[in-house]
Simulated assay, not measured.
Amino acid sequence: MDVLIYLIPAALFLGLLGLCAFLWSLRKGQYEDLDGAAERILFDEEETPGKDPDRTGRPN
């Protein structure tokens, strides 16, 4: 039971740390555009002339 003296404050500290990280990510706008990444993966990028189709960046 003496272990609870260490575990309860440690659990509260980690919970508070997680809550602070979540609130920080909310303020930085991490959850602003949830559909953008889902839609972006469906569309191909436009190919630039002079590059290989495998997108290695080497000129033809």
Score class of each variant (00 low, 15 high):
residue 1 M to R: 10
residue 1 M to P: 03
residue 3 V to D: 05
residue 5 I to Y: 02
residue 5 I to N: 00
residue 5 I to H: 01
residue 6 Y to H: 06
residue 7 L to G: 00
residue 7 L to R: 01
residue 7 L to S: 04
residue 7 L to T: 07
residue 8 I to H: 00
residue 9 P to E: 08
residue 12 L to S: 06
residue 13 F to S: 05
residue 13 F to P: 01
residue 13 F to H: 03
residue 14 L to D: 02
residue 16 L to D: 06
residue 17 L to C: 08
residue 18 G to F: 07
residue 18 G to M: 05
residue 19 L to Q: 03
residue 20 C to K: 15
residue 20 C to G: 15
residue 20 C to S: 15
residue 21 A to I: 12
residue 22 F to P: 00
residue 22 F to T: 03
residue 22 F to Y: 13
residue 23 L to G: 06
residue 23 L to S: 08
residue 24 W to P: 00
residue 25 S to C: 11
residue 25 S to H: 13
residue 26 L to A: 05
residue 27 R to V: 14
residue 27 R to P: 05
residue 27 R to N: 12
residue 28 K to P: 00
residue 29 G to S: 06
residue 31 Y to D: 04
residue 31 Y to R: 12
residue 31 Y to F: 15
residue 34 L to E: 13
residue 36 G to D: 12
residue 37 A to P: 07
residue 37 A to S: 13
residue 38 A to W: 12
residue 39 E to W: 06
residue 39 E to F: 09
residue 41 I to F: 05
residue 41 I to P: 02
residue 42 L to R: 14
residue 43 F to Y: 13
residue 43 F to V: 15
residue 45 E to A: 15
residue 45 E to Q: 15
residue 47 E to P: 04
residue 47 E to K: 14
residue 47 E to I: 04
residue 47 E to H: 12
residue 48 T to C: 05
residue 48 T to L: 12
residue 49 P to Q: 08
residue 49 P to L: 07
residue 49 P to M: 04
residue 50 G to S: 10
residue 51 K to H: 10
residue 52 D to N: 09
residue 52 D to S: 07
residue 52 D to E: 09
residue 52 D to P: 00
residue 53 P to Q: 12
residue 53 P to A: 13
residue 53 P to W: 10
residue 53 P to N: 12
residue 54 D to N: 13
residue 54 D to E: 14
residue 55 R to Q: 11
residue 56 T to N: 09
residue 57 G to H: 05
residue 57 G to A: 01
residue 57 G to M: 02
residue 59 P to W: 03
